[in-house]
Design a protein around this nucleic acid. Structure first.
Length: 443
RNA sequence: GCCCCCAUGGUGUAGCGGUUAGCACGUCAGCCUUUCACGCUGAUAGGAGGGGUUCGAGUCCCCUUGGGGGUACCA
């Protein structure tokens, strides 16, 4: 099995594209086949080196590798031209100056019958589509359906300047690369008969096709940039884990036979993924579920791994103890800093929180008592701190919250932080007392 | 307009002629509890509509409706 992923370099890698890449990768890696990467850049405007690099970057982040060097479609123009010439020589294509207006005029006269032009020896190259018969598309996911040839326009396969059009280019590239299975988005489905027509004119046979259902946004419309995190780049920036994204994406449009499972290791995915079981209907990308799943993966990580991933995202060194006590509280990497930055750069500046929590009558005494208890504490551990602070609560005869919240705000500057005992223990005696004193001075 | 495809709760899916329609996210309630989370327990809600076929239909067929894709000298 030889499959291919052929993104067009429009910038970021779209979620739908990422899923297509994943499925192709699963197919190749799960079967011992090969995955080749081709950049569909016949549209020169979009194919800047930066755009291409972004796509490759996104794939690397997802840990989806490919075999060999990525092929740039634009570099195969000679081969495309050769194939066009072959069709011209064989009389399976012709040059015609007819443009869009002429095609429209034809349809005004002939209804939905496909446009048929005349050999004019100049203009764009059009494929001669037979009037009889039908082109049958066999799709592993969607089954079989027939498209009447009579209804198909003689399509342009090369522009007047000789440059090949997309359909011509893909067909030739897939042929030359020996692609056996074409797995791509369903937006290519209706174009498949055209490509089969070209293949047929070339005297070749079509590969196995599989068209994946499109992804929609929460509003039911095709997923796009305005739906927020619609790209792999955005997911990475939000602090998702590639393994979680892969797991989530795999399940967006595919389900195991009789399976109630939700979590799959990449290994399991490779073993069990089957094209035949991919859904036919479009799916809605659900950020909430991805987030939930990401949290589950995050909590499974050992502290050292989590720390290095966080450092990678934040670009600064962290501390394992801080990472450890924050792990249960976050579901994406980017939630770490807002929660625990105060360990590194001092209490947050949140006047509203200070006012609300430290402005109450009991706050002063509570902080005093907590300070005294911690000052003399011998066992400076999470358990030791807990014993000391609970002692304060008991001694003061107040609710636990009446002591813990002021301490939290004094240390973190915010009403939210990791567990208070953990926070105190990790912050250390000197820093804790200093922050308590600062808060006391302001009360 | 024409061609093609799709249709199980709010979301992703399981089921493949006989089930109390399963699982997961979400939502709601409760528990846990020092905040926020996590976790646990329970609840909520579903086969678009209409015709067939059949003893029996999410499950097979047709129509309607709704949604999507294609229809470029775009990719």
């Amino acid at each position: 099995m030889r499959v291919r992923f052929a993104p067009s370099p429009t910038g970021a890698l779209h979620i739908g594209g990422a899923r297509t890449a994943l499925y192709n990768w699963l197919l190749a890696r799960g079967s011992g086949g090969e995955l080749v990467l081709r950049i569909e850049d016949t549209d020169r405007e979009r194919s800047t080196p930066e755009n291409v690099e972004q796509i490759l970057d996104a794939l690397r982040w997802l840990e989806l590798d490919w075999d060999g060097e990525p092929v740039l479609q634009s570099e195969r123009a000679d081969r495309h031209a050769e194939a066009v010439a072959q069709l011209l020589d064989a009389g399976r294509a012709y040059r015609s100056a007819a443009g869009p207006d002429d095609v429209r005029a034809w349809h005004d006269r002939h209804g939905n019958r496909g446009f048929r032009g005349e050999e004019e020896g100049t203009g764009a190259v059009r494929l001669r589509v037979p009037d009889a018969g039908e082109t049958v598309v066999r799709d592993v996911i969607r089954g079989t359906s027939a498209f009447a040839n009579e209804l198909q326009d003689d399509l342009v396969i090369a522009r007047a300047d000789g440059s090949p059009v997309y359909h011509m280019a893909v067909v030739v590239d897939d042929l030359d690369a020996g692609i056996t299975h074409v797995v791509r988005g369903a937006d290519h489905y209706s174009n498949t008969p055209k490509q089969q027509l070209i293949l047929d004119a070339l005297g070749e046979h079509p590969p196995v096709y599989a068209h994946l259902p499109l992804l929609h946004g929460p509003d039911g419309r095709k997923l796009s940039k305005r739906h927020g995190a619609a790209s792999v780049q955005a997911l990475r920036d939000e602090g998702h884990l590639p393994e979680a994204v892969r797991n989530y994406l795999a399940l967006l449009g595919w389900g195991e036979a009789g399976g109630d499972d939700t979590f799959y290791t990449t290994q399991e995915l490779q073993e069990r993924f089957a094209l035949e079981r991919v859904s036919r209907s479009p799916a809605v990308f659900d950020e909430q579920k991805l987030r939930w799943m990401n949290g589950r993966y995050l909590r499974e990580l050992d502290v050292a791994t989590l720390q290095s991933r966080l450092e990678g995202l934040l670009g600064r060194p962290l501390r394992p103890d801080v990472v450890a006590i924050s792990q249960d509280k976050i579901s994406t990497l980017s939630e770490f800093w807002p929660l625990s930055h105060f360990f590194f750069d001092g209490p947050a500046d949140d006047p509203a929180a200070r006012e609300k929590v430290l402005g109450t009558d009991g706050a002063g005494p509570a902080l005093e008592a907590a300070r005294a208890a911690l000052d003399g504490l011998e066992d400076w551990s999470i358990d030791g701190v807990e014993a000391a602070l609970r002692g304060v609560v008991e001694h003061e005869g107040v609710k636990a919250k009446a002591v813990f919240q002021p301490v939290r705000v004094a240390l973190a500057g915010a009403p939210v932080s990791p567990g208070i005992f953990e926070t105190v223990a990790v912050l250390g005696r000197a820093e804790t007392l200093r922050r308590l004193d600062d808060a006391l001075a302001a009360v």
